[in-house]
């Protein structure tokens, strides 16, 4: 489900079933040299999370992407997010990111780090097959987590 009022109404009645939150983490690099790569990574991560949401609509709530500056303190941000989510009914939380700095952060469990693929210059059908390929890599991680802890 998406983080909009219509889906949240539905979520409120189905909390038992929608037990997983997905949080995209996106680094903002606004320097002249880094901006394009940053935008591409953001585009990639958002397309991926949208198709992920489509596949698992009834079990995950896709939160809006958390964007932060390059200098942001990842571990502090991680702690804050973790605290906010720990007060909800979600049993599983996944963080998806293309930012390698999260790999060193130990506050968060289930951080899925994915190398960004620049999909911006691809044509529609090729982009679609690439994204579906990526989705196939991520899906088992979700189903594995669900079967382990349920």
């Amino acid at each position: 489900m998406h983080f909009n009022s219509k889906d949240i109404d539905l979520y409120a009645g189905q909390k038992d079933y929608v037990d997983t939150a997905v949080v995209p983490l996106i680094e903002l690099d606004l320097t002249d040299t880094g901006m394009k790569a940053s935008a591409g990574a953001s585009e990639y991560l958002q397309s991926l999370t949208v198709i992920l949401e489509k596949q698992f609509k009834g079990r995950i709530l896709l939160l809006p992407p958390i964007s932060y500056a390059r200098a942001a303190d990842r571990s502090q941000l991680g702690q804050q997010l973790k605290k906010e989510l720990s007060e909800t009914a979600f049993k599983h939380v996944f963080y998806l990111t293309t930012d390698p700095k999260w790999r060193a952060v130990e506050e968060l469990d289930n951080v899925l780090w994915l190398p960004a693929i620049p999909t911006g210059d691809m044509d529609q059908s090729f982009k679609k097959s690439v994204m579906e390929d990526q989705l196939r890599q991520v899906l088992p991680l979700f189903t594995k987590e669900w079967t382990h802890h349920s």
């Binding site: 539905l10 189905q14 079933y17 929608v18 596949q55 698992f56 609509k57 009834g58 079990r59 899906l139």
Partner: peptide
């Protein structure tokens, strides 16, 4: 689209029931 909560179902997604549609969510 699964009639439960709208996930995407797959044909033969469950190895134990290869001739059924399977919804991975629930």
């Amino acid at each position: 689209v699964c009639k439960h909560l709208g996930c995407t179902v797959n044909w033969g997604g469950d190895p134990e029931n290869p001739t059924q549609f399977f919804c991975p969510c629930h």
